[in-house]
Computed example of a mutant assay.
Amino acid sequence: MPTVVFEASALGPAVSAEAGAGRLIDVCDDARAPVVFSCRDARCATCRVEVVEGEQHLEPPTRGERDRLERLGAPPRLRLACQAVLRAGPGLVRLRGVIDGDG
């Protein structure tokens, strides 16, 4: 199981969680991570996270996620937590929640 670490930000304190394979948004929800979200299906794009470390432990973004992030002008290191999927197996994923205007 990967360990997911959410760095402290203006959104809240640092938290970490052990996670199995699955959507990153579910880990955010369970861990009460400092990540804003509402729709859970990429319509609002508020759940942007910066992948600081461990990108290899996430499945590549789908075309829909890439399209949404490109429309926002987001840099490649940003992902949508509602679309990002953790891979099974050990590892460390370090993330930072993004506030509008951060990226």
Rank of each mutant, 00 (worst) to 15 (best):
C44I: 03
L78Q: 13
P60N: 10
T62F: 06
R79S: 09
P76G: 06
E50C: 08
R32H: 15
T62N: 08
V36H: 11
R48A: 02
C39D: 05
E70F: 00
L72K: 07
R71I: 01
A33C: 07
R48S: 00
L69V: 02
L78V: 12
R43Y: 06
C47E: 03
F37M: 05
F37H: 13
E55L: 14
P60F: 13
C44D: 11
V36E: 15
C47Y: 02
C39I: 02
R79N: 11
T46A: 09
A74P: 03
Q56T: 11
P34L: 11
L58W: 07
R79L: 11
T62P: 03
P60K: 08
C47P: 00
H57C: 11
D41Y: 11
R32D: 14
R40L: 05
E70G: 03
D41W: 04
R79T: 11
P34A: 07
E55D: 15
P75C: 02
V35G: 08
R66S: 12
E53F: 09
L80R: 08
R43A: 12
T46Y: 00
A74Q: 00
R77I: 08
P61A: 10
E53H: 15
G64P: 02
H57Y: 14
C39R: 06
L58R: 11
R77S: 15
A74G: 01
G54H: 09
L72V: 00
L69N: 01
V52R: 15
V35E: 10
R48G: 00
G54L: 07
H57F: 13
H57T: 07
E55W: 13
S38M: 08
F37W: 14
D41T: 13
A42F: 00
T62Q: 12
C47L: 05
R66F: 04
